[in-house]
């Protein structure tokens, strides 16, 4: 959907509200990786994260008229939906029952790790493999944090959201965001040092 690359999220939303699913498609292309990462970190599951991504976009598409650009950006609005959907899945009885009765190992998607953000050069296979190992080790440590700490930290460190934006997504105060991120860092450092 390269022809819409120059448009801002807001311009895309205006067109999508007018009924253009192609403009909404550009928003999907733009944010899916971020949305997947956030859903994956909350649910801890690739398959559930995929479901959350689909349901969240569908919900966003159906409720575009309710999106208020004076209150938040599309990105924070979408992430609010994603977090709520992820929490709903994690706390559902159906999920707990499935986890309890199933020893099913789910497949992991093919993940890629960003090159040097400045040069955007692709990484060689060896570096990719080493990053993949580091990712799994970090993932394991992150899973030991309470969801709120983990989400706040990742929204800041990986998705570069401001404290204000995180407060909006998580529906808490900015000072709570500060505390959550600080506690998450402290705990992670303890876990790494152990």
């Amino acid at each position: 959907m390269g022809r819409f690359e120059d448009l801002s999220d807001q311009e895309l939303i205006i067109a999508a509200r007018g009924g253009s699913e192609h403009h909404f498609g550009e928003l999907v292309d733009r944010h899916t990786t971020m949305v997947y990462r956030v859903a994956r970190s909350i649910t801890g599951s690739h398959e559930e994260a995929e479901d959350v991504v689909q349901e969240s976009y569908l919900r966003a598409f159906k409720n575009l008229d309710k999106f208020d650009e004076s209150k938040s950006t599309f990105k924070t609005w979408l992430l609010t939906i994603v977090r709520n959907q992820s929490i709903n899945i994690v706390s559902s009885f159906r999920r707990k029952a499935l986890k309890f009765f199933s020893d099913h190992e789910e497949g992991e998607p093919e993940l890629e790790f960003a090159s040097n953000p400045l040069t955007q050069e692709p990484l060689d296979a060896e570096t990719q493999l080493s990053l993949k190992r580091q990712y799994h080790a970090m993932d394991k440590a992150l899973k030991k944090l309470p969801e709120r700490q983990r989400t706040a930290l990742l929204l800041r460190s990986q998705e570069s959201l401001s404290y204000d934006e995180i407060a909006t997504v998580m529906d808490i105060s900015v000072s709570s965001v500060e505390s959550l991120i600080f506690r998450a860092r402290k705990k992670l450092i303890e876990l790494v040092e152990r």
Binding site: T32, P109, E112, A114, L131, L154, Q158
Partner: peptide
């Protein structure tokens, strides 16, 4: 820690998930 978190920020290797979403939309 912050550098490590940024380094291990994964991306999806292909656009199949975005395509699935667009089909559903």
């Amino acid at each position: 820690l912050n550098n490590a978190l940024t380094n291990v920020k994964p991306s999806l290797a292909d656009s199949s998930l975005a395509s699935k979403v667009k089909v559903r939309i």
